[in-house]
Nucleic acid binder design. Structure first.
Lengths: 195, 195
DNA sequence: AAATGCATGTAAGACGTTACATGATTTT
DNA sequence: AAAATCATGTAACGTCTTACATGCATTT
């Protein structure tokens, strides 16, 4: 028996949480886990096939009107596979690919202005994420403990990044001003940031 | 002209920072960016070829003794491509795949103990990362502003995750105790955590 | 003499996104 | 009547990791 693929895990989990169709799964992933574990249709539908072949899920046709629709549920083997994964010890995989940080890393190559623009772009995208998560947070009452915890952690992290970006920009601007003031006396006006 | 590939960017950047060989690049990536942008030999060497074909870098054979060795440097076009990327506006890509959080999200499926074990596993792996970054931090004097900033942000983030995991575990344990105390009176001993 | 580090590379496969295509149902 | 939502799927492509293979140079 091949081990659960990465996408296989999300799918089993989402079906366990009540998702029925491939479409359903995608909706739920986009609403809940996409910030730390995304999935696309191009992965989901083929993977549903494989999981059924492996006997971990079972689907049956359940059309709504003239519209084809396949409803899936976990088999006993599927529940076992899911539990086995959740119970497995050993460090969980963790990967980040952050273009903003990469640019920041290389930012000595460019101008100080470029660096600040980049920090503002980072700030902006993480602030977006915060706003999305805050939307979800309003119905935290109807959530299980797991989803509540991940939401809380996500909010905390993205907020921390936003705040750090703000602080970094401010520090860089002050350094720039210090440097300018040390050379000669001119005026500069400060910007105000949206939020 | 095809746009810079993801790995192409790191390679150009690392060469700009002074890396000379493919081996060099890999070493530097592993020491500096791998927590937010990794690269493997399987990507690096083929990509060096492509970048040379595109005229963005130029390599020349520079053996050390009987050992083959190719030293690369940026061409003018390569510097332009790198600057163009660093200067580009529009939100930078940002992706996370965090198995620990995914398990946490699904943790209502398992037992409370499983959830706590999972949180401890997360804590452990992020604490490892913190330790690695602290090693790098000791020679922060010799770093440019960019590397210093990414190091600082990385440290802050991973430390925040460690702390959040600790707090979450504690909260969950307290809830468990409250629940137990509400039913009947027994004793439980607390664990002590390594660090 | 052995182990570690320097240095280069490839092949196979795993994983993933994007873009496209199709069509029914429900809401506006 | 149009737009949004539900629902399923595929093909092409891009990207990346793992595992393997090789061999010289330096340090222990």
């Amino acid at each position: 028996m091949p081990p659960l693929t990465p996408t296989g895990r999300v799918i089993l989990g989402m079906i366990a949480l009540g998702s029925q169709t491939g479409y359903d799964i995608k909706q739920l992933v986009d609403k809940s886990t996409r910030n730390f574990w995304a999935a696309s249709y191009g992965q989901i539908y083929p993977e549903l096939r494989r999981l059924e072949e492996q006997g971990l899920i079972e689907g049956q046709s359940d059309p709504r009107g003239g519209r084809a629709r396949t409803v899936y549920e976990l088999t006993a083997a599927g529940q076992a596979a899911l539990s086995g994964w959740l119970d497995a010890t050993g460090d969980p995989s963790f990967e980040v690919r952050d273009e903003g940080m990469l640019k920041l890393f290389f930012s000595d190559i460019g101008t100080p202005d470029q660096r600040i623009r980049n920090l503002r772009a980072m700030r902006h995208s993480h602030q977006n994420t915060v706003a999305q998560l805050e939307q979800l947070d309003v119905n935290a009452d109807h959530m299980g403990t797991g989803p509540k915890l991940t939401l809380e952690l996500g909010l905390g992290l993205h907020r921390a990044i936003v705040e750090w970006c703000d602080a970094a920009v401010q520090r860089l601007l002050e350094e720039k001003n210090d440097h300018r003031d040390a050379n000669q006396h001119r005026d500069a006006s400060q910007h105000s940031d949206d939020d």
